[in-house]
């Protein structure tokens, strides 16, 4: 019974989705909407395949910017979150800044970075860092302060130094929260890199997207969107994989 229900749960959305695509296909085949506005799904897939080599080149650049920015944000976030957690003055000084900066839509300052850092990879990476840094820092901070005082006291009373306290208790305790922050910012990282590329540059999916948009190659725009989505999904999957591996006490006993 339960299994049947599971299958039902899977099949219903698939059928629904397939129907939508089918309707879309028909709408553009009989040209209710002109193809330069809404190309048919089959056309998009064809374009995706024929432009694949070019797309891969650009995707590689975007992915690089995103990953480099992402890693830099993780390193920064660790340094800042741990110092905020261990030094109350630092926390008081920085916390309001981090919260307010969250409310600035990063897209609006992207042109500024183009002016400051030119049209190379740097401004894109800076944007990625800016969008990823805060969610990671906040989630890590929350995780670090989630530890029960009694547990901290106990380990302290066993003679643990501050560094040992972080190593044995605080950092492992913060992992679940840290990873949820990573997952949020993972999708932001690709988005950040793409937005940075819209503003200007030579390579990357964002640059390519602007170029094909200008020539009204709508099928190509869709192809880029698909690639960007796939990239985001890949990064997410990778993080989920690392998450499962690094927390065996939650996700099973295989070490």
């Amino acid at each position: 019974m339960k299994k049947l229900k599971n299958i039902e749960d899977k099949i219903i959305p698939i059928v629904f989705f397939a129907t939508l695509i089918l309707i879309w296909e028909m709408v553009s085949r009989i040209e209710i909407v002109p193809t330069y506005i809404l190309p048919a799904p089959t056309t998009i897939i064809k374009t995706l395949i024929t432009t694949m080599p070019k797309l891969m080149e650009h995707a590689y650049i975007t992915a690089m910017e995103a990953v480099v920015g992402f890693i830099i944000s993780i390193i920064f976030a660790m340094i800042i979150a741990i110092s905020m957690d261990s030094i109350p003055v630092v926390r008081k000084a920085i916390y309001p800044l981090i919260i307010t900066s969250q409310t600035i839509p990063i897209i609006t300052i992207a042109p500024l970075f183009a002016i400051w850092f030119g049209f190379g990879y740097l401004p894109k990476i800076v944007i990625v860092v800016l969008v990823c840094f805060f969610p990671i820092t906040l989630s890590l901070l929350e995780g670090l302060s989630s530890v029960e005082t009694e547990l901290l006291n106990l380990i302290k009373s066993m003679g643990a130094s501050k560094i040992e306290l972080y190593k044995i208790v605080k950092i492992p305790a913060a992992l679940p929260s840290f990873f949820s922050g990573l997952k949020i910012s993972a999708t932001y990282s690709i988005m950040g890199a793409t937005i940075g590329e819209w503003v200007g540059g030579k390579n990357g999916l964002g640059v390519y997207m602007m170029r094909v948009k200008q020539s009204f190659a709508t099928d190509k725009v869709f192809a880029v969107i698909i690639v960007i989505t796939l990239l985001s999904v890949m990064i997410l999957k990778l993080i989920s994989f690392i998450e499962k591996k690094s927390m065996p006490w939650i996700y099973g006993n295989k070490k």
Binding site: E150, M158, A160, A173, W249
Partner: peptide, 29 residues
């Protein structure tokens, strides 16, 4: 601190360490 050993009302074992690693914490420290 550090002279007597103290067991709390709650077990306060570290969820991310197995039992052997958990009981070894004071020795390692």
């Amino acid at each position: 601190t550090g002279r007597v050993s103290y067991m709390h009302q709650k077990d306060l074992l570290l969820p991310w360490k197995n039992i052997l690693e958990n009981v070894c914490v004071p020795l390692v420290l």
